[in-house]
Amino acid sequence: MKARVIVTLKNGVLDPQGKAIEGALGGLGFDDVGSVRQGKVFDVELSGSDKDAAKAELEQMCEKLLANTVIENYAIEIA
């Protein structure tokens, strides 16, 4: 089973890297860019076939390691 975990910064947390990318896009002539927030994507392969169990396990992975919940949110997608 394939799953994708998307980790993004919480609203209100300053993202200097996103800001720098935003500036660089502007410099390339992409004038309509309002803002950019940078995040992370993890593609995880799991051996089981129970989607609910996998989702629960992925949530644990996010809480324990993949995300720092002080500053980040996470979303889980299972194919």
């Binding site: 947390v13 300053l14 200097p16 890297q17 720098a20 002080v70 500053i71």
Partner: peptide, 17 residues
């Protein structure tokens, strides 16, 4: 220590990058 939960908060990328 912050990642381990022994101290509150987090250390993020320097504002000046």
């Amino acid at each position: 220590l912050t990642e381990a939960g022994l101290l509150p908060g987090a250390l993020m990328r320097n504002a000046g990058l």
